[in-house]
Amino acid sequence: MRPASHLAAYEKLVEDLRLDDQSQDFIADPGAPANDDVTDDSVDTAELRDRWSKLTDTHQFPGMLRKLKVGRRRALHSIGDDFAWRLDTASVETMMRSAAETALPIMCFVGNRGVIQIHSGPVVKIGTMGPWLNVMDETFHLHLRTDHITELWAVRKPTADGHVTSVEGLDAKGEMIIQFFGKRKEGSSERAEWRSLAEGLPRLKTVVAA
């Protein structure tokens, strides 16, 4: 609770949602492994690209992957760089600092099997401590272990309002750690400032042995 919070509304929420059984005996089901165990040869790239290109809403994306039985990481590697390309993992800090410097409102998604937390708006106070990238704003705190980001991607997804661009961080298992979009309203096109920022982030350098 904060000084400006509505205490009565909070107390009603607690009353409405309280579970009668308040015992501390809780056993969590093990999480399902990332569906990323297919081989390169088992991805039907043509079908993936066809379905991807026909998306009309970003919320259709997980369902598309489930239907194709393809993990997110495998899909990103297979789709082609007109839809997704690898970024240098340090680009996540570059993006956050650039958004703060320009007061660009962004959306930040962090989730697990049980809940997704979303920040929508500007970020201001960006700082680092060891591997942690931190946002320490009055109404938004983020503590991101950048060393756990194994792959960072810029991703284009078609929508009915034109394509939108996300920046997505995956861990070593191919599971999503964090996802960023430019803030936009449903029915509106993507902010040009966000698209320019995302498309201009440093890409992963490929070293070719002689």
Rank of each mutant, 00 (worst) to 15 (best):
W153C: 12
R113F: 07
K173M: 15
H143E: 05
A160F: 09
V115F: 10
I116F: 10
K183N: 02
V115S: 12
G114V: 05
V167L: 06
T159Q: 11
L133I: 02
D171S: 12
E151W: 05
G130H: 09
K157S: 07
H148G: 03
G130F: 03
M176S: 09
M136D: 04
H141N: 15
L144R: 08
W132Q: 07
T146G: 03
K173F: 13
P122L: 01
T150W: 15
T159N: 15
R145T: 01
H148W: 06
R156V: 04
H148Q: 15
M136V: 08
H119A: 01
W132G: 03
T150Y: 15
G174E: 09
G130N: 08
F140W: 08
Q179G: 03
G174C: 02
W132M: 10
V164S: 03
R145A: 13
V123M: 03
V123E: 04
I126R: 05
V164F: 12
T139K: 12
T139W: 05
K185A: 09
D147G: 08
T128N: 05
W153A: 13
M176D: 05
K173T: 05
L142R: 05
P122M: 00
H163R: 15
K125E: 01
H163M: 14
V164A: 11
H143Q: 14
R156A: 06
F181K: 08
N134Q: 07
M129L: 08
F180Q: 02
G130M: 12
K183A: 05
E186Y: 07
F181W: 11
E186C: 07
D171M: 12
G162H: 11
Q117R: 10
L152K: 11
H163I: 10
L152T: 06
L142K: 02
G182Y: 12
D147S: 11
L144E: 02
F140D: 02
T139E: 14
A160E: 12
H119Y: 03
Q179I: 00
D161W: 09
A160Q: 13
D147M: 14
E175R: 04
D171F: 12
M129C: 04
G130E: 10
T139V: 06
D147L: 11
E186L: 10
V124Q: 04
T139P: 04
H143R: 15
